[in-house]
Nucleic acid binder design. Structure first.
Length: 567
RNA sequence: GCGCCUGUAGCUCAGCUGGAUAGAGCAACGGACUUCUAAUCCGUAGGCCAGAGGUUCGAAUCCUCUCAGGCGCGCCA
């Protein structure tokens, strides 16, 4: 385990005062806003009651009581704060040697050893195009998968495809009327979507069509051979299209079990709900009353006896608990579904399942355009395919301008172009809405994916050109410039940032942190030559560069982004 | 009408389990490539933290109300 300065600080202070417990100190420690105030600070305001003294006097007393110490170079007090300056050489050695030792595993942990986490993400609707709105669930879920895995959990990624419902009856009806196999094979999703839209247009004029759609769905549910064959065909075609995108994004799922997977499992759940006397007839439908919990009722069965969305989610949760025995099940969807999740999760609790608190909805903000909502039917959607291609294309142009000698330009352009899109999506708090804007999307300057990737490539390039090997060094006082210390501090914080990202299910913590690291590196890079003649100095700086390169690569990987060595 | 979320620089956002002088990036302006990748770096300018009360030694952060925007509130998923 790496040396933890906070821990040492708490131990140190608590050892001097009987009334202070290590844990309490740990709670109080913070990082000062300015560097000249130290690396850690202990504000003493809250100790005033305990000591019955003014905070600044307490701070003074604590400061005086601590003498020389191997981990802290100096300790002083300013007002009510005790400021700690870590011994920079000790910090540099611990952090950099740890990275050298663990390499890309630096920051990983076994917090979740032997524990399963189910993550439900992406989940696009069959026969609908994959647009920028779907990207969010996909990349957030994928990143959470990587983060949990990095911390030792065993993850199960599920793509809960929208592959069931009345719309498939309509689709089949539309196909029977106007479908053209050849056209569908060439442009499956576009063509299916066109059929779907046409169906709705025609249905306006001729309401009889709606009945035909319902009729086909009924046949599908009853296992009619033709209906099933067509449905399966639509699903396969869509999945093939989706897989092209997933391949591009390098995203995989452990299961592609869509909504239809639970068709034959819901009856049992409805029976259970009845047995537990939770089901109540209301306006013809069956619901679970949630008035005691200040929520509207949870609809379980329609008046015609058909199941609903919550029924399926409850069934899926029970199935997944049985199958994977998860300690956590995450559902990554946009926040418009928050109430829905709160409702059915409450039903799980009311059913007596003590694991209800292991279910968690991970909501994120919605994507819209400057003109308003993105709607498939309105035709103002931005297809993810188009976005990725545009991004890759732009990167390709920049490479041609900046680095025409580069070897595999297309491959690099792909990594950077896609990285830019993913990074952009994961750079703000996930709850914030996004108004899609091409210029913003395709900007590669400043706090962007390409910036971090570029920094990584720069670092890699220096290491390649180095005269000496990267290895442990003797004299860490060679790394005490302000710019170097900043970098080392950030590298040191990386492991706790990863844990925070997991605790809050917030990949943007990692995005932000690797931007900080990249900024600190670029500043140092500009200020100090690395490949200097002096062997000792060069090796010290190389070790630092190696640390940055490694952590940037790991951080990007946790976001689901590749880090090319050259760009 | 009720509930949830959001409101910080011109724009996009950090900071929100209270702590020291509110930070970045973009855009604007001015600088730095004979030197390890200028997709970079440095500097200038830009703020009544939506508004009003309250709690506190201390509030962008906690509480109450108001305003603005988004989302949701029974047979879609």
């Amino acid at each position: 385990m790496m040396l933890d300065f906070k821990e040492e600080l708490a131990k140190l202070v608590s050892s001097k005062f009987d009334s202070l417990k290590k844990e309490d100190i740990l709670e109080l420690i913070e990082i000062p806003p300015q560097e000249d105030m130290g690396d850690y600070a202990l504000p003493c305001f809250k100790l005033a009651k305990l000591f019955r003294k003014a905070p600044n006097l307490i701070a003074e007393e604590i400061t005086e009581s601590i003498g020389n110490n191997q981990y802290f170079a100096s300790i002083n007090n300013v007002g009510a704060y005790v400021n700690f300056f870590v011994n920079r050489e000790v910090m540099a050695r611990t952090v950099l040697e740890e990275i050298l030792d663990k390499k890309e595993e630096y920051g990983s942990a076994n917090l979740g050893k032997g524990q399963n986490v189910v993550i439900d993400y992406s989940s696009p609707n069959i026969a609908k195009p994959f647009h920028v709105g779907h990207l969010r669930s996909t990349v957030i879920g994928n990143s959470l998968y990587k983060i949990y895995e990095f911390l030792g959990y065993n993850c199960i990624g599920i793509n809960h495809l929208g592959d069931w419902g009345t719309q498939f009856g309509k689709m089949i009806a539309a196909y029977k009327k106007w479908g053209n196999d050849e056209e569908i094979r060439q442009e499956p999703i576009q063509t299916l979507l066109k059929l779907y839209v046409k169906f709705h247009e025609e249905a306006e004029k001729n309401p009889e069509l709606e009945n035909e759609g319902r009729e086909w769905f009924k046949r599908l549910e009853d296992g009619d051979q033709e209906a099933e064959r067509l449905w399966k065909w639509f699903v396969d075609l869509s999945l093939q299209e989706f897989n092209k995108i997933y391949d591009l994004l390098k995203i995989k799922f452990d299961y592609n079990t869509g909504e239809s997977f639970y068709n034959d499992k819901m009856e049992e759940v409805v029976r259970l709900l009845k047995e537990k006397k939770l089901l109540k007839k209301s306006q013809g439908a069956y619901v679970v009353d949630l008035e005691d919990y200040d929520m509207p009722p949870c609809l379980i069965l329609k008046s015609d006896g058909a199941t609903l969305y919550p029924t399926r989610d409850i069934t899926a949760a029970i199935y997944r608990k049985k199958t994977f025995n998860f300690v956590k099940a995450l559902y990554v969807t946009d926040y418009s579904q928050s109430l829905h999740f709160a409702q059915w999760m409450k039903v799980i609790e009311l059913m007596g399942y003590d694991w209800a608190d292991q279910l968690e909805h991970i909501p994120f903000g919605r994507v819209s355009s400057e003109e308003g909502a993105l709607q498939t039917r309105k035709g103002n959607v931005i297809l993810l395919k188009d976005l990725l291609n545009k991004s890759i294309e732009k990167v390709r142009k920049i490479i041609e301008e900046n680095n025409p000698e580069l070897d595999n330009k297309d491959e690099v352009a792909k990594k950077v172009g896609i990285g830019a899109v993913i990074f952009n999506d994961l750079s703000n708090s996930k709850i914030k809405d996004i108004v899609f804007n091409w210029d913003r999307m395709l900007s590669f300057d400043g706090e962007t994916g390409p910036y971090v990737q570029y920094t990584h490539a720069r670092a890699t390039s220096v290491l390649e050109k180095a005269t000496y090997r990267v290895e442990k060094i003797k004299d860490y006082s060679l790394l005490t410039e302000e710019e170097a210390v900043n970098m080392i501090k950030l590298l040191q914080q990386f492991p706790e940032i990863v844990i925070k990202a997991m605790e809050r299910n917030e990949p943007s913590f990692i995005t932000r942190h690797i931007i900080d690291i990249a900024q600190a590196f670029n500043k140092f890079y500009h200020e100090y030559p690395i490949l200097v003649d002096d062997r000792e100095v060069q090796q010290a700086r190389l070790l630092l560069v190696y640390g940055v390169k490694t952590v940037l690569k790991t951080g990007l990987a946790l976001l689901g982004i590749e880090a090319p060595d050259k760009m």
